[in-house]
């Protein structure tokens, strides 16, 4: 059933590609199976299918980024026998999620400058801080941030393969873990030919909490005083109810 739906979507994409490509501009079309990932109460991670077609031969790189955030990175040191956070650096505009897929290893496709310009590959992300820190120390913090993001499953270092069907159709599955940050995502699809980016397209994707979980989260942040009272009332009611039930039993 899902396979049939996929084939249908691919067929539509393929049919659309030359039609729009007739104007000469559209060398690349891509879309995803979903534009909204809903985090429900039972959310344990999910996959989103990304597919598209290229006009003629070429390689494809796909970069998925979560909403940018400021991330504090802290370093521990041993003081008096115990490990204590002793220094911190706040990196600004760090993508909260970063995922990469390519049809060939990225270093074979583009030069380092181009990778850096487009932010392709976690090692080419611009991690900057307003704080004045020595270059060597900063490198330690950068590596620490990347290691932790990778450990949490939010950054991928090993690019996933993009499967080509014939010369023109491609598809891949983007994986989002259970702890995926919410907000607007961007899925950038790059078409690469002869060491240059020949075309690019951005597919929007939104990850949002829905249902009771979303309501609770929104309530707690939007009207936190009321939420606090609500939490107390719930606890009082539950405690009293339990008391009544078990006194009768």
């Amino acid at each position: 059933m899902r396979r049939a739906a996929l084939l249908l979507m691919l067929a539509v994409a393929l049919a659309a590609a030359p039609g729009r490509g007739g104007a000469g501009a559209q060398e690349l079309v891509a879309d995803s199976s979903r534009h909204l990932v809903a985090i429900t109460t039972g959310f344990v991670g999910t996959e989103v299918l990304l597919f598209g077609a290229t006009e003629g031969r070429g390689d494809v790189i796909i970069v998925v980024r979560g909403p940018a955030r400021n991330e504090v990175t802290r370093r521990k040191g041993r003081h008096g026998g115990i490990w204590i956070n002793e220094a911190e650096v706040t990196f600004t505009n760090v993508p909260s999620y970063y995922w990469l897929a390519s049809s060939k290893p990225i270093d074979n496709l583009l030069r380092p400058e181009a990778l850096e310009r487009h932010g392709i590959g976690v090692n080419h992300l611009a991690l900057v801080t307003p704080k004045k820190v020595g270059e060597k120390e900063l490198a330690g913090f950068r590596a620490g941030l990347l290691r932790n993001k990778i450990k949490d499953g939010l950054f991928t270092t090993k690019p996933r393969d993009i499967a080509f069907l014939g010369d023109r159709l491609f598809r891949t599955a983007i994986y989002f873990p259970a702890n995926v940050p919410t907000g607007p995502y961007t899925v950038q699809v790059f078409l690469v030919r002869e060491g240059r980016v020949a075309g690019a397209q951005t597919v929007p994707l939104n990850i949002a909490k829905v249902g009771i979980g979303a309501d609770v989260y929104h309530f707690a942040h939007a009207s936190s005083a009321l939420y606090g009272i609500f939490a107390i009332v719930i606890a009082l009611a539950a405690g009293l109810l339990a008391g009544v039930i078990f006194r009768k039993a």
Partner: peptide, 15 residues
């Protein structure tokens, strides 16, 4: 857990 050398001396947190 406080005395043991952590796996990674760097950690991240939200601002």
């Amino acid at each position: 857990s406080l005395v043991l050398t952590p796996d990674d001396i760097y950690s991240i947190g939200r601002v």
